[in-house]
């Protein structure tokens, strides 16, 4: 089997697993971190496809913007500090 193809299947399965974790995560922040993983691995796919610039922009725009999603996740959802009072 070709090495590139092997890496592709490996990355693709990781992307699918992370995407499954995004959907089935209990905690919104966990989901968002898995989403960042999805984006990063997609950038790796782009590198395999020799689209390096696209990969860089993928990381810069999507992964960089993930922190904003986390902020919205924290600010717009009500979360109880574990074993403590409401935040």
């Amino acid at each position: 089997m070709d090495l590139v193809l092997l890496i592709f299947w490996f990355l693709a399965s990781l992307i699918l697993a992370s995407a499954w974790a995004v959907v089935n995560g209990n905690d919104i922040v966990h989901s968002v971190v898995w989403l960042a993983t999805v984006f990063l691995l997609t950038a790796c796919l782009f590198i395999i496809a020799d689209a390096e610039f696209l990969a860089v922009i993928q990381v810069l725009v999507y992964v960089g913007a993930i922190s904003v999603v986390i902020i919205f996740g924290i600010m717009l959802t009500k979360r109880t500090l574990k074993g403590g009072e409401d935040v």
Partner: peptide, 8 residues
């Protein structure tokens, strides 16, 4: 994030 008490 609503108002919260911080203990300093």
């Amino acid at each position: 994030m609503a108002e919260m008490w911080i203990s300093m």
